[in-house]
Design a protein around this nucleic acid. Structure first.
Lengths: 182, 182
DNA sequence: ATTGACCTTCCCAATACTGGAAGCTCTACC
DNA sequence: GGTAGAGCTTCCAGTATTGGGAAGGTCAAT
């Protein structure tokens, strides 16, 4: 079947299918005489697998690992579970960060009159004129600005000092997107 | 002061300061005779403002709006509050998405033995062999694959149908990053 | 004079796609 | 047979927000 059909059946946009092929997440599709990609039902199943994993928030890299495990008939469910659990940890961290932000924002907005006058605790806080409220110090006044998605969400439980999730370093296992140096 | 000093005092990396300048988030710094950027204490305050706003999860675009309001002595606190509240809504959506994923993942991992055998409910679920568990349908089987950060997290409260936060369409107000066509 | 720290610009990497242009192929219709 | 329109191909660029690094100019101290 053509890429358009595979797209419809898998729910993955044709462009994205090509992208997945280019980065090596899915194998290169067979080509027909006219150079059109040719997909089998198995290919569609693979795409659906990826689509579901992505919906669960797995990164493309993690999808690649999961796909390999899926295709490996001799896998140990332990390995799959490990990937999933590590992903849950990442999600927990992100949730903790977001909830920390949320708490602060809600606090600030609650104290903002929201009228036509210019006085605003939100701006005051952002400007650093610290009024007496404890939250600001809880937001991690750590001095340096971590890159947003890595904001020190530390305070999830009690600051446990040892940051467990690696997630940062790590060689990219997926083939790089087509380089024009070939 | 030089960019390095401004960076230390504001907590914003020098590279990021240059980036903020390039996109027009902060005004172009004065230059000294040697072409070095020259920052004032006011500039540092602005950078700290941005840093705090970023820590609260505001996008650079939102930071730009907040900065403008901050500098506008005649602003209405209502306008500031609106930005903040809309941001809280976004955060709520993202939390809801993450929690929805989390629920599913935790359910799946709980049912996975995690031993050396290959049987794995996680892979089964991803493969689409749907065993009887209700959650799958809760993940939004919406047919098409939205781009991850825009996953239909709808169910934040009770689906209120009218999505208030714009954030999506909308001309980018910030000057584009330096184009080499100049 | 030289060293080392700092500054400049420019390009590339990462994430996970999405959009569009230019051009080829297929199908249907007249 | 010709043509229109849909679908396919590749390649380039853009999204948001930095971080890394190269090549080269500047400054302060030795």
């Amino acid at each position: 079947m053509n890429i358009g059909t595979a797209s419809q059946r898998s729910g993955v946009p044709a462009k994205t299918i090509r992208y997945y092929e280019s980065i090596g997440l899915v194998r290169s599709a067979d080509r027909r005489a006219n150079n059109y990609r040719d997909y089998s039902d198995r290919d569609v199943e693979t795409l659906r697998f990826v689509a579901r994993a992505r919906k669960l928030g797995f990164s493309v890299k993690q999808c690649s690992v999961l796909l390999a495990l899926w295709h490996d008939r001799g896998r140990a469910s332990h390995d799959v579970k490990a990937v999933a659990l590590s992903h849950v940890e990442e999600i927990d961290q992100r949730i903790a960060e977001l909830e920390s932000m949320r708490r602060l924002l809600v606090d600030l907005t609650a104290r903002c009159q929201g009228d036509s006058r210019p006085d605003c605790p939100i701006l005051d806080d952002l400007a650093g004129s610290r009024v007496t409220h404890s939250q600001r110090s809880a937001a991690g006044e750590s001095g340096s600005i971590p890159p947003c998605h890595a904001v020190a969400g530390a305070r999830s439980a009690s600051r446990s000092s040892a940051r467990s999730a690696p997630s940062r370093g790590g060689g990219r296992s997926l083939r790089r997107a087509v380089s024009r140096s070939s």
